[in-house]
Structures are given as structure tokens and as C-alpha cells.
Amino acid sequence: MADVVVEHGRVARTASAHKRTGLHNALKRKSTVAFFLTLPLILLIALFVLYPALFSIHLATLNKSMQKFVGFGNFTFLFKRETFWMVVKQSCIFAVTAVFFKALIGFIVAHFVHNIPAKGQRKWRGMLLVPWVIPPAMSTLAWLWLFDPSYSAFNYTLSFFGIGPINWLGDAAWARFSVILVNVWYGAPFFLIMYLAALKSVPDQLYEAAAIDGANWWQKIWYVTLPMMRNIIAITTLFSLIVTFANFDIVRILTSGGPLDQTQIFATYAFRVGIESNDIPLGASVSLFMVPILAVAAIFILRDVNKRGNES
């Protein structure tokens, strides 16, 4: 009997010791520590990103009074609306044009800054980042005053040259131009800083080798700089595309989607329909419309980045 007890005790002890060692080992593992360190962030993301995202999917499947499940009913309703397709078109024009110009301006200015001697470069970098660090709601208000329908500072300046007055926010074409311009102004510094970092990581030897081969500046950009920056360009473009598609504040403050809904984009239209017109499920459907399209774009771009990473 006593033997059995001793035996049992030993088995039990061995098992618990084993368990302790297992837990001990697990805790010692870097990945476990990393997981626990990131857990607060994961929980925050789950709470503030995942939950609202899932909740908005749930909302998008309800009828207007939110009492009945309608499946894809809200989406089929939207697909029949002329205004919705106008919003789709405008969102695409807005996002693609803004991202293109942000990338282009960011790329050009990054080169300028890169060529400034290191001593003065910090000041320029700081100044050029200013638009990006000011909260857009605030800076857009300043733009609103510049574009103001009746007291535009731009029109005042242009009047000295006999130009204008331009109906910046009241004419559809100018209103679209204005909202894109402000978005480019706000977002270009992000591209600038990313491209500057990428430029700094391109080894000088590559340029020297290209120069020896007789490459001119354009060929250096085309055959050295761009291939070396491909991944960063892809990632920044994807990131910016997603953020620009989801833009709200700039359009909301400048035009509220007008005139005649001709600057309405997904987020502002979702707000108009969901909150102002009190059709929350339809608003949720509008804001979710781009998710599958952007997700597919993200998969392709990231797969490409991954492939190039493996190749290198």
C-alpha cells in the first residue's frame, strides 16, 4: 500500500515537474514572450477594429429598421441606385488620382531632399512633414477658407492677374480638383518620407557601376532606383490607396459631397445615408462595398512583394 502511495506520489511529482518544465520552457520561448507582449495590442485591435468591423457586417445584413435579416438585400438595393454608382466612380477617381500624385510628388521631392547635404536635410525633412502631422480636420478648415465660396484667398490673389473668380467648391470639376489637391497636399509627405528612407538604402556602388556603364540620370532612375524601391512603392501605394478610399474628413469639410453629390465618396456617402438619413444598415453597406475589392488588391500586391523578397 505504502509502495503504491510512494509510486503514485512519484508519478504525480514527475508529471507536475514535467508540466512545470513545459510551461517554463514555453515562457522562455521568444515567440511566447512576443505573444504576451503584443497581447494588449491584439486585444485593443480586436476591441476597436475587429469588433466594429464584424458589427458593421452584421448591420449591413439588416433592413432599414434593423429588425429583419435581409442578407445581401442592401447591396442589391445599392446596385440599382444611380447615385451609388456615381459615388463608386468618384471614389475611384479620387483615390487613384490622389494616390498617383502623392506618389509622384513624394518621389520627386524625396530625390530633391536626398540630394541636399546631410547638414541641412533635417530642416527640410521636418518642414516637408508639416502637412502630414497637422490633424487633417484642422488643416482642411484652413483650405476651406482659401477656397471659400465668397471670400476665397486664392480668388483674391488671382484677381491681381485678371483671372477668376473660380468657383472652387461650387463647380463640379473644380470641387473635385480641390478635394484631390488637399488630399495630395496632406498625403504626399508620407510618400516622401518612405521614399527617402528607401533611397537612402540604395547602395551607392550601384549608381557608380551604372555611371561607369554610361547610364544617364533617367537610366539610373529606371534601372537602379525604381527596381530597388519597388517593394516600398508597392506597399506605400497599397496603404495609401486603402486610406484614401476611406477618406472622410477632407471631403466632408470642404464640400460635404456637393455640389449635386459630385464629390461624394464612400465614407461621406455612408455618413449621409447612415447617420443623416438614419439608414444605418445601408450606410454600413456603402462603407463595406470596397472591402472585397481592396482585399483582392492587397493580396496581389503583397504576394508580389513577398515573391520579390524571396527572389532577393
Binding site: 465660396p149 465668397s150 471670400y151 468657383n167 467648391l169 470641387a175 464640400t255 460635404s256 456637393g258 455640389p259
Partner: peptide
Amino acid sequence: LPPDAPSWDDASNNKWLISGR
């Protein structure tokens, strides 16, 4: 009406009157 009236918000008419225009 003023040609920029399509872009007016709720503050625009106030400013219009106050400015004397």
C-alpha cells in the same frame, strides 16, 4: 443668386449678410 450658391453651407448666408454683400 450668387454663382457660388451651390457650394454654400449653413454659415455662408450668415457671412453674406454680415459682410454687407
